[in-house]
């Protein structure tokens, strides 16, 4: 019975992920012409890591937008994006990662490929998870803010050197569809493609390596997990300490100890696995 609930929960989540990704990247004309949508909807951000240069994208990527504002000459702080993160984070926390992020969906699908032995955690997992906070601070905030050219304009360092979502959703389709862009692709494109390929291969064996170790957006939303409106709670009276929740958790979190961990992506697998129904959404 518990397995049945788990399967139903996973299927519902997959449908929501597919639906949200399709809805926010539904500019079909962009895919046909090898161009991007240029309408006013792009002033608004989508909650997940969804590149605004994807031919189908209707909204903006919040991490890209934050870097764009910080790298501009006029601003050294973004009220618009800070407000956006406060609202989405305080309401949902990392629910966005588990249910709404297109790149999370890609990693989920890759992990379903029945190839080799699945790895639960890599050596140094605990410390590697701190990398995403370094990337957030360095590549998303400090470098765009302080490394500027002679007119005071910075660059989106995370987008340029790391973001695999941009390579997958924008780089590869546009290089494929647009002749001019294909001719301009060089070292940077190869570098970013290599990062993406490594993550694709890794995702088959290890669950969501990008979310665990590298994603600055997950780092931001994770800060809100302990206090967000959407939280998990454990009824200690019902908990039998069977550890089924921890075994079900692919993010490898100690669910019983900390159900609102900053690493939790709210997939709900732990809730589905809890037979005594001790775990619940708040």
């Amino acid at each position: 019975m518990a397995n049945l609930f788990a399967a139903a929960g996973t299927r519902i989540r997959l449908l929501v992920q597919l639906g949200f990704t399709a809805a926010t990247n539904s500019y079909v004309k962009g895919f046909a012409d090898g161009r991007i949508y240029t309408g006013p909807l792009k002033s608004a951000c989508v909650p997940g890591l969804s590149c605004y240069s994807c031919p189908g994208a209707l909204g903006s990527c919040p991490v890209g937008a934050l870097q764009a504002v910080l790298a501009s000459r006029n601003y050294s702080f973004s009220f618009y994006l800070t407000g956006f993160f406060l609202m989405v984070g305080a309401a949902f926390g990392r629910f966005v990662c588990g249910w709404l992020c297109p790149f999370g969906l890609v990693q989920d699908l890759l992990h379903k490929i029945p190839l080799g032995r699945k790895i639960r955690a890599v050596k140094g997992d605990r410390y590697l998870r701190l990398l995403k906070y370094g990337i957030l601070l360095g590549f998303v905030i400090l470098l765009p803010l302080f490394v500027v050219d002679f007119v005071g304009q910075g660059e989106p360092w995370f987008c340029k050197w790391i973001c695999p979502s941009g390579t997958l959703m924008a780089g590869w389709p546009l290089v494929l569809l647009n002749n001019g862009i294909r001719q301009a692709a060089g070292f940077l494109f190869v570098w970013k493609s290599l990062i993406l390929i490594v993550l694709i291969v890794l995702s088959i064996f290890l669950y969501r390596p990008f979310c665990k170790y590298l994603c600055p957006l997950g780092a931001i939303y994770g800060l809100f997990n302990p206090i967000a409106l959407y939280r998990f709670r454990i009824d200690q009276g019902k908990c039998t300490n069977c550890n089924a929740c921890q075994r079900a958790c692919k993010m490898n979190i100690q669910v019983r100890k900390n159900p609102n961990s900053m690493e939790c992506i709210r997939c709900g697998d732990c809730i589905s696995a809890c037979r005594p129904k001790a775990l619940a959404r708040r």
Partner: peptide
């Protein structure tokens, strides 16, 4: 957060976001 978003709109940050988003981001695609 809602108040911050309104301040951001008032300060003109949305213009920068829109300008960046409606042009192909060369950094993003590598």
């Amino acid at each position: 957060g809602a108040a911050f978003v309104l301040i951001g709109i008032e300060r003109g940050e949305v213009g920068i976001v829109l300008r960046k988003a409606i042009n192909i981001c060369l950094e993003c695609i590598g």
